[in-house]
């Protein structure tokens, strides 16, 4: 597992950034470990979900963004569903990987961000998933040309893969991607200004724990 704490980091900048991106807080976590106990990927992770949550609270940005755990999370939502404190752990994982993705932090599982990039590019090109193109571009990105050739052949034989794409609302889809990027830039600038002026409250109301969850001690409280 390695050392949990390394270097110094001013707390809450990293935590508040993750909370704002997740739309939920992490302070309610009392480290019971229920999230890891039910996680189907647990044995493949370097840090358990509750350790990731704690690292975020400690401001251990480098450790979190370099972890395998944030990329291997399958978004199955078991942790989120079972958390007794209402922490939306699956969203926090999304928030951490989106931060690593945007900042181009080298990934501990590089094929996963390659898959994200290939899929996003695919959607901007066709508006829908065109699997053959996606698989080919993923192979080019990861360099693993021979992977799943057996599966691909069998699926082709069963005509489970379309050989030709369809194009649907491509310009509208591209416009959505562009506007999303612009809006997110604006929001990030607002958050940065907030932090500098010292009034930062981690995304305000959005940073409360998941609805229905007990305890509102988390929130995006000022530290």
């Amino acid at each position: 597992m390695g050392h949990l704490i390394s270097g110094r980091r001013s707390v809450p900048a990293f935590r508040t950034e993750v909370e704002a991106r997740a739309g939920c807080g992490v302070l309610a976590c009392f480290q019971c470990g229920k999230c890891g106990a039910g996680c189907p990927l647990q044995e493949h992770l370097d840090y358990s979900p509750s350790q990731i949550i704690h690292l975020i609270r400690l401001g251990q940005e480098e450790t979190v963004l370099a972890s395998k755990a944030i990329w291997l999370c399958a978004s199955c939502e078991t942790c989120t569903t079972r958390c007794p404190q209402g922490v939306d752990i699956a969203r926090v994982m999304d928030a951490a990987r989106s931060l690593a993705f945007d900042r181009r932090v080298p990934s501990a599982v590089p094929s996963v961000p390659s898959f994200y990039k290939a899929t996003r590019a695919n959607l901007m090109k066709f508006g829908r998933m065109f699997e053959v193109w996606l698989l080919a571009s993923l192979k080019l990105r990861t360099g693993d040309i021979t992977k799943d050739m057996d599966l691909g052949r069998k699926m082709m034989a069963k005509r489970k893969l379309n050989l030709f794409p369809t194009w649907n609302r491509v310009w509208e889809t591209r416009a959505i991607f562009k506007r999303v990027a612009r809006i997110e830039k604006e929001r990030a600038a607002e958050r940065a200004a907030d932090t500098q002026s010292g009034s930062g409250s981690a995304g305000g109301a959005a940073a409360s724990p998941r609805e229905g969850g007990p305890g509102n001690a988390s929130g995006g409280g000022n530290s």
């Binding site: 991106r21 997740a22 739309g23 978004s75 969203r91 999304d94 928030a95 990987r97 989106s98 993705f101 945007d102 898959f115 994200y116 990039k117 899929t119 996003r120 959607l123 998933m129 959505i176 991607f177 999303v180 809006i183 997110e184």
Partner: peptide, 11 residues
């Protein structure tokens, strides 16, 4: 799907 929500909550 996942490549959208894992890279941007808004997207």
């Amino acid at each position: 799907t996942t490549p959208a929500h894992a890279t941007s909550r808004l997207l």
